[in-house]
Design a protein around this nucleic acid. Structure first.
Lengths: 109, 109
DNA sequence: TTTATATTTCGCCAATTGACGAAATGAGTT
DNA sequence: AACTCATTTCGTCAATTGGCGAAATATAAA
């Protein structure tokens, strides 16, 4: 129960849901996500922490950066992500995904 | 996105998650649920409103009472409910389900 | 070892949430 | 028509949340 409560709490916030959805495009670091959604570093970092503690994403050091990526190891999370695949056609989601594609951390971080 | 945000918000609260889980046993009215979870009528009523507006449950007048029941019409909701079926073995969930079974509205409402 | 910088943590604030009891509503029953 | 009672709405309050910038941390690079 606690596990799913954390997952639902994490996804019940619009900013965090957007982050999870845009991580479908590719793993990203804090400043890339910050660039896409426009909130401050600290806000993004805090959201990532909540999503990570819910088990939805994992983090991995890569050079100077920490890559956050969807956790496809957990079967419960996979099922949730499958449901999230229904969310694709909304303007804001498409736009985030587009930005994620063209965003290059070498230019903005 | 808005639809799933509402669903996740609804399920991201422990009391509301408990209510949804116990409605798997049978449709119930406000006072039955109140009896099981121990919160006030107004609190239960408000939670039910939020869950209903998320599309997870529907309501139906039956004699003097309003029965709240899981909305199995919506396929998105059905998938969520399928995931919730993983939540079964926790003490509080079992206990709520047990109470739901033995609770008779004719005795408490 | 010092510097640069990506990330996290902290303290603050405004807005939202979840609880309550009391009052209002509304649909059967008398 | 008046009454009963299940339910909803309202106002209040404490706790939580989500945002921020500044300071702290940690890790690569020089």
């Amino acid at each position: 129960m606690e596990k799913y409560l954390k997952i639902f709490k994490a996804l019940g916030d619009k900013t965090r849901l957007r982050i999870v959805l845009m991580l479908r495009v590719k793993p990203m670091c804090v400043c890339e996500i910050r660039e896409i959604i426009g909130f401050s570093m600290s806000t993004v970092s805090n959201h990532l922490k909540i999503i990570k503690e819910a088990g939805i994403i994992t983090s991995e050091k890569k050079d100077k950066f920490i890559n956050y990526q969807l956790n496809t190891e957990d079967s419960g999370v996979r099922e949730i992500l499958k449901i999230l695949n229904k969310i694709n056609n909304e303007k804001i989601v498409k736009n985030d995904a587009r930005k994620a594609l063209i965003t290059d951390r070498m230019n903005i971080c």
